[in-house]
Amino acid sequence: MGRPRATPEARPRYRRDGRLGESFEIEKRYVRGDNSLVWVSNSVSAIRDGHANIAQAVAISVDIGERRHAQEIERHLASMIASSNDAILGIDLGMTITSWNAAAEKLYGYSEREAVGQTVLMLVPDDRKEEEPTILRQIKAGQLVKPYETRRLRKDGRLVEVLLSVSPIRDANGRVIGASKTTHDIGSRKEAERLKSILVNELHHRVKNILATVIAIARQTIGRDKAIKEDVVAFENRLLSLSKAQDLLVHGEGQQADLGAVVKQATSPYPCEVFQIDGTSVSIPPKAAVLLSLALHELATNAAKYGALSTPEGRVSISWQDETRACGPLRIIWREHGGPEVTTPQRKGFGSTLIDRLLSSELRGQTKVSYEKSGVICIIEADLSKISESSI
């Protein structure tokens, strides 16, 4: 072991106590043979001769490296807690506040002096008082409380939206003695979500009004001639399908729609028992949701006129395979059976043209329709990775 490196503040005491011959303890850093540092606690005692003069000194050295390391960790954690932007407080098993950082003071309005020693229930609104006993039961069992959204009460009486997580505090023997509660203020985020919901609903309302206006104009403009009344009804039904697809996007906050929900919405005008729907949950972007809804509407309309849905015994199976995780396409299979014998049509109708053009140009995919005698089979492939996230 090399020369000691006493801390500067310890040197005066070393010299003073050494002159007086008093016993003392001092912590030093020593340099080992490998040039690494070690912390040591020295207990120094003077040995006097027969004339009461100091003849020599005895030092007992104890390696305190682990203790110093633990102290450094404690100081580091204390610094992190003190400077955290999240409110962090400690409570004992009686729900009494034992520690309180600066962010807690900012969030709740209570100073550390006002909060420590008080019950944590002072932060809980009356309608959520049952939360704390439930949390305490989990903590006593040594369990972590997963982050969850709730409300807490400020000193001025205002409620704040927070994300709360709780973990047990243990003593040196591993016994649970309290809990650490971390609270993140999510008020701004919740307000932004509420505003977004209002805007999305307002936009949805306006879109629905526009579609209703288009239907009214169609009825007044091209619906007077009985010969084309069927075309007007078909046009109205397509707009209604588009409107229902917009409903799905509103429920998904305009970001994504579930493919299963799109399929069920598109087939909702017909009895549910005639469909067999099979596929995993797949989230699709807004444009894909609208276009697939229109495509499925056209397939169902044609099936009701000429195919499986035109007879009581007819059935339709709709299944899909999601290969997007493997950089493959989304593959949807529409298969009719039990209906009248199918023949290939002499000309391509509007619905088939709509499906081909929309899916090929907008969904970056392809459609293959087979007119088997047992029923129509339509395979739709769409590359979702190439679809713009913007709505149609």
Rank of each mutant, 00 (worst) to 15 (best):
L107W: 02
E236Y: 00
T311K: 15
R357L: 03
L292E: 00
E131H: 08
A304V: 03
D383M: 05
I379K: 07
K155S: 09
A261P: 15
L249V: 05
G90A: 11
C272S: 13
L296Y: 01
T150V: 05
I177E: 01
L248H: 05
G349A: 08
H69I: 03
L20Y: 04
K305L: 12
P8M: 02
Q56G: 15
N302Y: 01
T119Q: 12
K146H: 13
A288D: 01
E323K: 15
G307V: 00
R238F: 09
E236N: 02
R3Q: 08
F350H: 13
E66P: 00
D63L: 02
G174R: 04
D185H: 10
G338Q: 02
Q256R: 09
R5W: 03
S41D: 02
G349E: 03
E72S: 12
R137Y: 03
A192H: 02
S165N: 12
E112F: 02
P269R: 02
H76C: 07
V214W: 08
F24P: 01
L199R: 11
Y371W: 03
K368N: 12
R67I: 10
R137K: 11
N237P: 00
L330C: 06
S241G: 15
G178F: 07
R19S: 13
H76I: 04
I377H: 08
R68C: 03
E9P: 12
A70W: 09
S317F: 03
G252T: 05
S188G: 14
V233S: 13
E381R: 13
K208P: 00
R128P: 03
D231V: 05
R75L: 05
E381F: 06
I217A: 13
E298S: 03
K196L: 15
Q256P: 07
D86T: 06
D126W: 07
S317E: 10
L363W: 01
A46N: 07
E253M: 08
